[in-house]
Amino acid sequence: MPSVITANRLEDGIVVYLSEDDKWLPDLASARVADDETDLENLSTIAGQAAADQLIVGAYSMAVDLSEGTPQAKSVREQIRASHRPTISAVTEIQ
């Protein structure tokens, strides 16, 4: 099952994904996809180092949907995280 690694950035809590060149970026579409267990273990090792280097917190892997070409979140929770906003109009947007 294709998977990516996500976490929150330590200094501001923003949702990030492990991307190319070991960068942690907010855009899920740019995330590196692990196709098998070995790939995923490699990414998890990188994530462990990033946590030890105070870049990220709470890393975990999540399955993604690749039918659109780039990785897309499957669960409602991960769709909300990937969108970096609530699914409703915020009160400041209603005004």
Binding site: L10, D12, G13, I14, V15, Q54, R77, I80, R81, R85
Partner: peptide, 27 residues
């Protein structure tokens, strides 16, 4: 914490004592 002298496991109870949670999008 930011300098790496405290791990998240060490820091979490300290931040919670000051009302700071980590939620979906941010703290």
């Amino acid at each position: 914490r930011l300098a790496g002298q405290l791990s998240e496991d060490e820091f979490k109870p300290l931040r919670l004592m000051n009302g700071l949670y980590l939620q979906l999008h941010a703290y």
